[in-house]
Design a protein around this nucleic acid. Structure first.
Length: 597
RNA sequence: GGCUCCAUAGUUCAAUUGGAUAGAAUAUCAGAUUUCGGCUCUGACGGUUGAAGGUUCGAGUCCUUUUGGAGUCACCA
């Protein structure tokens, strides 16, 4: 039973005993450092149930709690804030009970609990991943890990947009414009050494360039821009290709398979470097034809209605939204319909799924609002547990990223750049004697990726990020490497602690030790809070606070230099627990920690 | 134009979801340590929380109005 619950019960009992009034809940906060005490009961809200002077009520409650709760030794009241002092014994017990708990803060899911499916990444297969995808991947992966740690079963998934006109553009451009590679054949990843997604991406850009030329020519011949866009031969050809693909034309489908294969190989490398993974994949080419059933179902239930031209709509005007098309007049499905079906399909495939999280940029806020509402109207019980993990754009100082114009920060390039920066800095410090080259490279990657991931994840998801590749990623202050550094330093201490420090001890606390213990105690609650808010930023900021608290302790207190054996043991244990907690909480962000750096 | 989101120190971010004197980092300046690991620590400087009203014991947070920025409003995905 945690201390807060104990006090809450006591406050309720106290209120009943003193004023004969029942209260439903009690509000807590951590006591501010300038006041004496460890936990604070906010008295003001209680005035609703018992009119009176908040200070007097605080005094009464304080008295009652000190008398009735063993762990509380003292109290004071400032305005309407009742500060309670928690006995050291409580913290000693707390520490000894979690010290060797390797899953401290993590909750194991119950067998019959519903699972959550977390979708993220979901790229198009016509271009490489860029900085925007990096934010998406890091967020999605991290939120999945956090929800898992908070006690829910999680499936990580993505839907791959592998069909549509955009794919045909790359295919067509490759077919028409690809020069021959080293072996005399048309360019492939094998004969050029290019990463598959890069190669395909180049042809997507190529298409756009040639297309623009055609448009310009047509406009010069007197067409309007609108007309030119539709009449350009390349565009018409791409449309033809899509029709062929849809009718299962063998040549087109083969090319599509080949080129998508290149892209998947390329993506796999990027995902591996980024440290993210998926439990299953959905392909739009498999799901885009689903839908007729759902439309029929919706019509039957009266959720959808048919217009004269045969198109099917969902009227959401009562909920303050628009009418939404779910089936074109020619009988084909739109994006929304596919999303409805994919959601339903997932629950069919994984029957324990009770909710879903969609990691998609905030430009689709409206889309998901509509999607969730329609699913609710269709009467699925899991529709209440849908969440759109919406995040802001990642901007560059030079302006928006546009993949067609090539003004993007490529994910692979970015990761290489981060690793290089880490290498430069680490080599200057030169603390890596005895490390093999491979170990060093591994470490540089850990640090570089740590910097990148922490930089992106520490910010609230819905805020936009301004990313300056040159100066934004720092290695000092509130950064990943700063935290990794602290971890490595603790490991150094542990390596040097060549005595048996395994036994539980009871020692009087140094002020800094108590602060650290308080911070450690917050960890389980932090995970729950981060899960409830779908926010890795909460975990990141917690870790930073923990590290700051540790550094303050480290500066003020000697660990291995302590002469009292029990104190020395406790300090090593405490340092170790802090390191373990850094490691756990960083694992929730997908960040590794080095033993040395 | 309708709807949604954002705005906090020069800069990058916090603020326990309505709680105490709005906190960190960075940059700048001053100091401590020179030892478990050097990227550690302490302090100073820095704010009318975009603006104006309102709600209440109490507002960065909620409501109204307003300014600026972004997104969205396709038989595109």
């Amino acid at each position: 039973m945690n201390i807060q619950n104990t006090i809450e019960t006591a406050v309720k009992q106290g209120f009943l005993a003193l004023y004969n009034v029942e209260i439903p809940s009690v509000e807590f906060q951590a006591t501010r450092k300038e006041f004496e005490g460890d936990i604070t009961v906010v008295v003001f809200p209680l005035l609703r149930y018992k009119k009176g002077n908040p200070v007097q009520i605080g005094e009464d409650l304080g008295n009652y709690i000190v008398e009735n709760v063993a762990e509380i030794t003292n109290y004071n009241v400032v305005k309407g804030f009742l500060n309670l002092v928690i006995d050291d014994v409580f913290y000693t017990n707390f520490f000894n009970s979690v010290y060797s708990d390797t899953s401290f803060g993590f909750v194991t899911p119950k067998a019959d609990d519903k699972a959550i499916m977390v979708e993220y990444s979901s790229p198009n297969t016509n271009k490489p991943l860029h900085l925007g995808h990096v934010r998406n991947n890091l967020l999605g992966y991290s939120v999945a890990e956090i929800i898992k740690a908070a006690g829910k079963k999680v499936y990580k998934t993505q839907i791959i947009n592998d069909r549509g006109i955009h794919i045909c553009k790359s295919m067509l451009a490759w077919k028409k414009f690809a020069p021959n590679g080293n072996d005399g054949q048309k360019e492939t990843p094998e004969n050029t050494g290019l990463k598959g997604d890069k190669l395909v991406g180049n042809y997507y850009v190529k298409f756009d360039q040639e297309y623009k030329k055609e448009i310009t020519n047509l406009i010069a011949k007197g067409l309007t821009e609108e007309e030119a866009k539709k009449e350009a031969p390349l565009f018409k050809e791409a449309q033809q290709m899509l029709l062929k693909w849809e009718s299962g034309d063998e040549e087109v489908v083969d090319l599509w398979k080949t080129m998508n294969g290149w892209v998947y190989d390329g993506f796999e490398v990027t995902y591996k470097n980024m440290g993210v993974n998926f439990d299953n994949l959905y392909y739009e080419s498999n799901t885009y034809l689903l839908g007729k059933d759902v439309v029929a179902q919706g019509l039957e239930k009266g959720v959808f209605y048919k217009k004269e031209d045969g198109s099917v709509w969902c009227d959401l005007t009562e909920d303050g939204l628009d009418e939404k098309l779910v089936l074109r007049s020619d009988g084909t499905a739109v994006y929304m319909t596919q999303d409805i079906c994919t959601a339903i399909q997932r629950v069919k495939d994984y029957t324990d799924v009770g909710g879903m999280v969609y990691t998609v940029g905030n430009e689709q806020d409206y889309h998901f609002q509509v999607l969730f509402l329609i699913l609710k109207k269709l009467g699925f019980d899991w529709a209440k547990q849908l969440y759109h993990l919406s995040y802001g754009m990642v901007d560059l100082p030079s302006g928006k990223m546009k993949s067609r114009e090539g003004t993007v920060v490529d994910a692979d390039d970015l990761m290489v750049e981060m690793t290089d920066t880490a290498r430069t800095i680490s080599e200057e410090l030169g603390k890596l004697d005895g490390y093999s080259d491979a170990e060093k490279e591994d470490l540089y990657k850990t640090i570089g990726m740590g910097a990148l991931k922490y930089f992106i994840l520490k910010v609230d998801p819905k805020k936009r990020i301004l990313f300056d590749p040159k100066s934004s990623v720092d290695f000092q202050g509130n950064t990943g490497p700063f935290i990794q550094y602290t971890y490595a330093r603790i490991q150094s201490i542990i390596r040097k602690a060549d005595f048996d420090y395994s036994k539980p001890v009871t020692v009087p606390f140094h002020e800094k030790e108590k602060e650290l213990l308080k911070q450690l105690e917050l960890f389980p609650d932090t995970i729950q809070q981060a899960a409830a808010n779908y926010s890795p930023a909460i975990v990141a900021n917690y870790t930073y606070d923990l590290v700051k608290e540790f550094n303050s302790f480290y500066q003020n207190v000697s660990i291995l230099g302590e002469t009292d054996l029990d104190k020395k043991i406790f300090r090593v244990q405490l340092a170790k627990k802090v390191a373990d907690t850094i490691k756990s909480s960083f694992s929730l962000l997908g960040i590794n920690v080095p033993e040395r750096m």
